[in-house]
Design a binder for these strands. Structure first.
Lengths: 381, 381
DNA sequence: TTTAGCACTCGCGAGTTGTGAGTGCTAATT
DNA sequence: AATTAGCACTCACAACTCGCGAGTGCTAAA
C-alpha cells in the first residue's frame, strides 16, 4: 500500500489547500495554485486512485475532494515537516510564561491561554497527577478552635492544602503532635499507597485519646487523597466558533457541551498514552508511505514528543469532528500533566505542533525554575 | 405615562408568549391563546398604542410584535409575580449544595453548576470580595529551605494561602518571628488599608537584619493583596447556543468571547450595585404602570433581593442581546460575592428569579454552616 | 368604544433556472 | 504506457419568481 512521490505531493497539496480554504479542492485549482507540470486530467486520475485507497473523499459527485481521516493521518505522520517557532514569536511566549510567575497553577493557566491565543484554536491543560509522588511532609496549622489548615508537601516540590474542621477541644500543641505522628508514619510513601488504614496506623502513635484523633486523621487522609485531583483548564472555547465547520450551531453546541464536562475530558486526557506505536515505518524522504490505517503514531524523540488524534480516533462523542494534539509536561521525573490543542480536523497541524512543543518545553523549564528557586532571569535568588 | 389594566394584560401576554415561542406575536393569535373577550382589532389598536409608548416593537411591518427593552423592564418590574420554587425542586437543589461540602470555593462552583442546569441558561458566580475584611492572622510555614507557605486568615473566617520563596539562610524560627511581627502589626486592619508601607513598618519589629526580612515582608504583602482577588466561575456557557437568538454563530461567538474574558466580566459584576433606585413607584395591583424608562429596579426586601439588567442596560459589549439577573450572597456581615444567570432577553424571568433566590439563600445558609462548623444535617460536629 | 371589512405588507418556503467548478470516460498524442 | 484534450454529465448554490399566510392600519358601521 505504498504511494508514489506524485501521489504524496498531491495528497499534501490537497490537505494544505483544504486547511487553508475549507473548500473541497479540485484538480484544476490544484494545478493552478501548486504549479504541477502535468494537466488537470492527470491529477484527476491520481486523485481518483487516492480516493480508492481511502485517503480522500468526495462530499458529493462533482465537487472537489476532501481529505479523509486516513488522509490526515498520512499527512501528519509522513508529509508534514514541523518547523521551529520563529525566534520572535518564541520570545513573546517565553516572556509571557516567565513574568511574575510563582505557582504551577498559574503557569498552567497561562500556558493554556497563550496556546489558544496563538493558534486560534481551543486549548486544554491538565494539571499534574501526583499519584506516584511521595509524601514529604504533612503539617497542620491551627486557624482557630475547631478549624485547621492541612498542608501536604509532595516530593515533586508541590504543596497542596485544605481547610478542615477538627474537634474544638484540640489545642495547637496536640494538633501538631498528631500531624507529626502522621508525617512520621507516612512520609516517603507514594500517594497511591496511602490508605485510610495506613493513616490510621500512623496517627495511633500518639498519647492522645482516639476520640480526639479520629476526625483529624480522617481529614488528613482526605487532604492527601485530594492532592492528586485532576484539574482541567480550558481556554478559548469560543475560538472554534469562528471555524466554518462550526457554522452549524448544533455542532458548536455539542462540541461545547462535551468540553464543559470537565471530569469526562480530564479523565480522557489523563488516559492518553504517548508511547503507543512509534514505528516510524520505512517511510522516508517522501518516497513511500506506509500506514496500517489504525495505528496512532507518536513522535517520541523525547523532547518534541507529541501525539495527534484525528477525528474518530478521539473517543469522546462530541469531538469526533475534531483533531486533538497533546503533549506531556513534567514535574520532577515522572509526574506529568498534559497540554493539548483541539481544533477542526482541518487544523494547521504544523503551526499547532510547533507551538505546543515550544510551550511544553517552556513549561518544563519554568517548572524546574520554580522548584529550584531561581528567579525570572535564571539566576539564583 | 400610565397604562390601563388591559394594556398591562396585553403587554404581559405578549411577553409571556414571546418568551415561550420566540416568534413575534400578533393580535389574532393573542386573542386565541389568552381568551381575551374582545376582537383582534381592539387588541391591534392597543398594541399600536403600546408600540407608540415604546413597550413593543415590530421587527418589520406586518409581522407580529416583540417586546422592547422597555417592555421587558415593565414586565419584570410590575407584571411578573415570582413564585417560590416547588418543594421538590428546592429539596433537590438544597441537598446537592449540602452534600460533601467543605470549602466555600466548592460551594460556589456547585451553585453555578446547579443554577445553569436548572434554568438552562448560563450562570456566573463571583467569588467574595474581601477588601473590607479584617486581617486576623498571618502565618508562615517553612516547607524547605528557601520556600515557605504564607497563610492569611481573614475575619470572615476565610483562609487563603500562597507558596513563596524566601532567603535560603532564614530558618524556621526566624521565619516565625517575622510572621508574628507582621501579624502583630497588621491584625485588625482591613485589606484595603494594608499597604507595602504598613507591612514594612510591622516587619521592622524584629531583631533580624533587614536584608533577610525584606523579601519575606514583600511576599507577605503580596499574599495579603492576593487574598481579595476576584475569581469568576462560569457554568453552562454552551446552553445559550440552544436558544434561537444564538442561531447566528457570530452572535454566539461574540457572546462566548465576552464571557471568556474573566477579568472583564468579574470586574463588571463586582461593580453592580443593588441599592440603586428602589422606588416601587405608585404601581399597584396591575392598575397602573409607572416607569421612567431608565431606572433599574431592584427588589430590596432583604432576602429575595435580586437585580435585573435587560439588554442595553448591560454595559458589556457582547452581552447587549441578553438579560442578566444577579443577586448577592454573604459571608459574615459585609463580604459578598455575586450569583448571576445570563440568558436571552426573552428569558423565563420568573423561573430564573425563583431559582436564583433559592440558590442564594441556600448558599448563605451553607456558608454560615461551614463557618460555624455544623455538619450537613445541621447539628454540631 | 368596539369591531367588521378590506387593502396592503412582507417574510418565508417551494419551485425554477443558470452558472460554474467539478467529475469520469474515451480517444488521440507523446 | 502514461498523459492529455475533449466532451458530456453532475450537482451545489445563488438568484429569481410566486403564492401563501399571518400580520398590519384604516375606515366606516354598530
Amino acid at each position: 500500500m505504498g504511494l508514489n512521490a506524485r501521489k504524496n505531493l498531491i495528497l499534501k497539496s490537497v490537505v494544505d489547500d483544504y486547511i487553508g480554504t475549507a473548500e473541497p479542492v479540485g484538480s484544476k485549482s490544484l494545478v493552478n495554485k501548486y504549479s504541477f507540470n502535468v494537466s488537470p486530467a492527470t491529477i484527476r486520475n491520481e486523485m481518483a486512485e487516492l480516493e480508492e485507497l481511502g485517503y480522500l473523499e468526495q462530499p458529493h459527485t462533482s465537487a472537489g475532494r476532501v481529505p479523509s481521516d486516513k488522509g490526515y493521518r498520512a499527512y501528519v505522520d509522513h508529509l508534514l515537516q514541523v518547523e521551529d517557532l520563529p525566534q520572535k514569536e518564541a520570545e513573546v511566549i517565553r516572556s509571557y510564561l516567565r513574568e511574575n510567575m510563582d505557582e504551577v497553577t498559574q503557569l498552567i493557566r497561562r500556558a493554556a491561554s497563550v496556546l489558544s491565543e496563538k493558534t486560534d484554536y481551543t486549548s486544554l491543560v491538565l494539571s499534574p497527577q501526583y499519584r506516584k509522588s511521595h509524601l514529604k511532609q504533612i503539617k497542620m496549622l491551627m486557624i482557630e478552635p475547631g478549624r485547621a489548615l492541612v498542608v501536604v508537601v509532595l516530593s515533586a516540590g508541590v504543596v497542596k492544602d485544605r481547610l478542615v474542621r477538627i474537634p474544638e477541644m484540640l489545642d495547637a500543641q496536640q494538633l501538631m503532635q498528631v500531624a507529626s505522628a502522621i508525617e512520621d508514619g507516612l512520609s516517603g510513601m507514594t500517594l497511591d499507597d496511602i490508605t485510610l488504614v495506613t493513616v490510621a496506623a500512623a496517627a495511633r502513635h500518639t498519647p492522645l485519646p482516639e476520640s480526639l484523633i479520629n476526625q483529624v486523621m480522617y481529614e488528613a487522609y482526605l487532604s492527601i487523597k485530594q492532592a492528586d485531583q485532576l484539574d482541567l483548564y480550558l481556554d478559548g472555547s469560543h475560538r472554534l466558533l469562528a471555524q466554518p465547520e462550526f457554522q452549524d450551531v448544533r455542532k458548536a453546541h455539542d462540541f461545547l457541551e462535551t468540553l464543559n464536562r470537565d471530569k469526562l475530558v480530564a479523565g480522557y486526557m489523563s488516559e492518553l498514552k504517548e508511547d503507543q506505536d512509534i514505528s516510524h515505518s520505512d517511510y522516508e524522504n517522501n518516497e513511500e508511505l506506509v500506514n496500517n490505517g489504525t495505528h496512532i503514531k507518536c513522535h517520541a524523540a523525547d523532547d518534541p514528543a507529541y501525539m495527534v488524534r484525528i477525528g474518530q480516533e478521539i473517543l469522546l462523542d462530541g469531538l469526533k469532528e475534531c483533531s486533538f494534539i497533546t503533549t506531556s509536561y513534567k514535574i520532577g521525573d515522572t509526574v506529568a500533566g498534559k497540554i493539548g490543542v483541539i481544533g477542526p480536523k482541518r487544523m494547521a497541524y504544523g503551526k499547532v505542533i510547533s507551538h505546543i512543543n515550544f510551550v511544553k518545553m517552556t513549561v518544563n523549564e519554568q517548572i524546574r525554575r520554580l522548584a529550584n528557586g531561581e528567579d525570572e532571569n535564571g539566576g539564583i535568588v
